[in-house]
Design a binder for these strands. Structure first.
Lengths: 336, 336
DNA sequence: TTGTATGCGTTATCAC
DNA sequence: GTGATAACGCATACAA
């Protein structure tokens, strides 16, 4: 590792010497709201500008016991929806004077490892962004009581005492089913992804539940190997291949947009069915491409700005840290 | 900001007291390859485990003048291709014992601001990941000579003395044009995105150049408003609307896959043309969805693992820091 | 308002 | 191999 020894950064001490004051006065000049005369401040700032001084945030962190860094754990980079959320997250963190450490959770760097590392780096908080992390490992002896505050974003929390910020699945599915029912659909099907995530299970469960409330007890279930267009295509192909046209669902809800894209391609391309006339499609997430003419996918948008705002408020401590469920919004397009 | 005062972390000093040694011995126990007896090390490790001690990386950074943190500047979250690169980048950084600080460059937080901030945080390096940042601002007085080493990833460097790691555009376009020529296409068209980025211009320029080498001097140029499917669709719609079938290109290369998706949808959906029989399509980036049955898009894949490896090697100083151009790979599918 | 002493937790360097 | 001294750059508490 090349160290940063090109040109030493100026320190408060040096600025103090140049300005003819003590280094503590320099600190004050850079501390908003501290008592210092205009004159002193002006001289300090002048000297600072000349020496190109700016406070060393590392040293400040050590002294204040607060790094203003937040570790963000991500373990599913395959989901393109992560990107806009990361954008929102970094933007709002930065606006709050915080900065994101992006941690890739994978086979070589698991949650426990990452948590230990983030802890050593003294981060002010850890955001589990849609990662599958359960309680068990946390009770290990190796993890002390000194862990940074943790928060779960966009997934249910499976850890005792760790709050989550999620989109209201019940409301979402209620809106979706109501919409489909009003449109006249009566034979629903649901395609789920591979995982047994509680968030995913909940969508399926509410889907079933709300159809039942309408008196529709028969729901077909499809499942895809993973969250990819190809997997969605394969899943729907299997379904359509073994299902007589008369028995076929008239609307298929996919657990996310990516699955829906694959399903739509297959339905139109391979089976020559019209969407939504012969089978309607619903996705989840409102991924950008769904708005294009080709897909025009009815979907549900999670309130990512509000979710991020909520989690940051908890981190800052401006609101109590407790699980929050926020309403999203149904986006109706031509696929239903 | 809630500080981390729940339970104070154990320090080397406390571990030393518990183990009956000096704190420097504790440090040695945690420093691979330092001279310490097995017995001392064992006792230290025992005490450390009991007290749940682990070294404070913040304090270490201050003392060693090396944070092992790398700031990654991103200003275009709309491009979904950023995500897999971020995955690769974080994975390899972590494998090298480094960690990524993800910085969102936007209207509220520009490059200069971000650079100053990263500098204050004492990052070991800054990666400009596909951001549009030019030299001018850098010569400002406000930016000292103390800036961290900078590197540009996936775009040409426009800053004097700052190396870049890019995909070889010349080779890429040569491969693409050769492939198209062999397939028998003779009427090429090129769709560019909105920006006047040198990387983008270069693709267009080489595209033209290599067709000229084949004796084909006529190339149609389309331009999209931005890098979105919708913009690609609009662009190709305008083109096809004003171009007689006889004058139409027989192959359209789009500057990236997203534009290509939009173009393909429009070409098939609105104009009822067959791909590739009536018009072939080429993209760039090998975005995942392009592999799906519906698109099956011929495209070009940037060598992201090698690119990331190269930039990290420069950061670590294991290779000289200089601009590197790496070969990607043509991915041939059914759209050509 | 300003200056002084002390602490944050670690590493580097030198004696022993 | 081990302990001690100094230093990293800043913040807090207190005295002037």
């Amino acid at each position: 590792m090349r160290k940063r020894e090109t040109v030493k950064r100026a320190t408060a001490k040096e600025v103090a010497a140049a300005a003819g004051v003590s280094k503590w006065t320099v600190i004050r000049a850079f501390t908003p709201g501290s008592s210092i005369t205009e004159e002193s401040k002006r001289r300090v700032m002048e000297a600072a500008a000349a020496l190109n001084y700016s406070p060393n945030l590392l040293a400040r962190s050590l002294a204040t016991n607060s790094t203003r860094q937040v570790a963000v754990f991500v373990d599913d980079f395959a989901n393109p929806q992560k990107l806009p959320v990361l954008e929102t997250l970094t933007e709002q963190l930065q606006a709050a004077g915080l900065v994101a450490m992006l941690i890739n959770i994978n086979n070589h760097f698991d949650h426990v490892h990452a948590l230990l590392h983030a802890d050593q780096r003294q981060v002010d908080a850890v955001i589990l962004f849609g990662t599958a992390f359960r309680d068990e490992t946390l009770t290990d002896r190796q993890l002390g009581h000194t862990l940074p505050p943790m928060f779960v974003l966009a997934r249910d929390s499976q850890i005792e005492g760790v709050p989550a910020v999620v989109c209201d699945a019940e409301l979402a599915l209620r809106d979706i089913v109501n919409h489909l029912y009003e449109k006249g659909y009566r034979r629903p099907a649901f395609m789920s992804g591979a995982t047994a995530l509680s968030t995913a299970l909940r969508r399926k469960q509410h889907f079933t539940e709300f159809w039942a409330e309408k008196g529709i007890e028969v729901v077909d279930y499809l499942s895809a190997e993973k969250y990819s267009a190809e997997a969605g295509a394969i899943s729907v192909r299997n379904y359509l291949s073994v299902t007589a046209a008369a028995d076929r669902a008239d609307v298929l809800m996919c657990e996310n947009d990516i699955l829906a894209f694959g399903a739509m391609d297959e339905i139109r391309g391979k089976f020559g069915l019209r969407i939504p006339e012969e089978i309607a499609i619903v996705g989840f997430d409102n991924y950008e491409l769904g708005g294009s003419h080709a897909y025009s996918l009815t979907t549900y948008e999670q309130p990512r700005h509000e979710m991020v705002r909520a989690i940051i408020a908890m981190i800052l401590g401006t609101v109590e840290a407790e699980t929050v469920t926020l309403p999203g919004k149904l986006v109706i397009r031509n696929s239903t």
